[in-house]
């Protein structure tokens, strides 16, 4: 059994290494009924609870993406008063290097807010350059279903009128 101090140190190292993954996923799911801090905290707790059981059968990034997405999606599901009219002013700890990129990021965030929770998961993984196989592993969909869904999501987003 791991010494608690070792576990704590290793866990913090892991969190620091993958904090951007967790933060980006939480940012996608932020809504009036799900603020960033709640989603981030909930994800970290789930990772802690699963930390001892993680044996490296999957890549650690896959494990973390899965935990973050599942946490956010089930939070949204249980607190189902969230509306699609998200404010762009929701505070999130993301910064962009230039203000024009921040504007595009906000546009993207608003587009993504119009997708279903599962579609948000798929598009987030695609934006982070995950392969179709990895997306299928994390979501539980088949490879072909991921391809079809991603194609439909991209079409849907492309057709959305400007904000």
């Amino acid at each position: 059994m791991q010494n608690n101090n070792d576990k704590e140190r290793q866990f913090i190292e892991m969190l620091d290494q993958y904090k951007s993954v967790i933060a980006k996923v939480c940012c996608i799911y932020v809504s009036p009924n799900a603020d960033f801090d709640d989603l981030y905290q909930e994800t970290v707790i789930n990772l802690w609870n699963g930390f001892d059981k993680f044996r490296g059968e999957a890549k650690i990034s896959t494990w973390i993406y899965r935990a973050a997405i599942n946490t956010c999606i089930t939070w949204i599901r249980r607190n189902k008063k969230h509306s699609n009219n998200e404010t762009l002013d929701t505070e999130m700890p993301l910064i962009a290097e230039e203000s024009s990129k921040l504007i595009d990021y906000r546009r993207l965030k608003t587009l993504i807010s119009r997708l279903s929770p599962l579609e948000k998961a798929i598009v987030t993984l695609w934006l982070d350059e995950k392969s179709y196989d990895e997306i299928a592993t994390i979501t539980g969909l088949s490879h072909s279903n991921v391809a079809v869904k991603l194609h439909r999501i991209k079409e849907k987003m492309s057709k959305m009128t400007d904000l």
Partner: peptide, 29 residues
């Protein structure tokens, strides 16, 4: 129309605020 492949590269370029998240990670742990 929005070019999603362009947005993708900008998404990858976005950075998270390191200091506050590192502090949060320590406190939560």
């Amino acid at each position: 129309m929005i070019d999603l492949d362009e947005i993708k590269s900008e998404w990858l370029a976005l950075k998270v605020e390191n200091a506050s998240l590192q502090q949060k990670n320590k406190e939560l742990t």
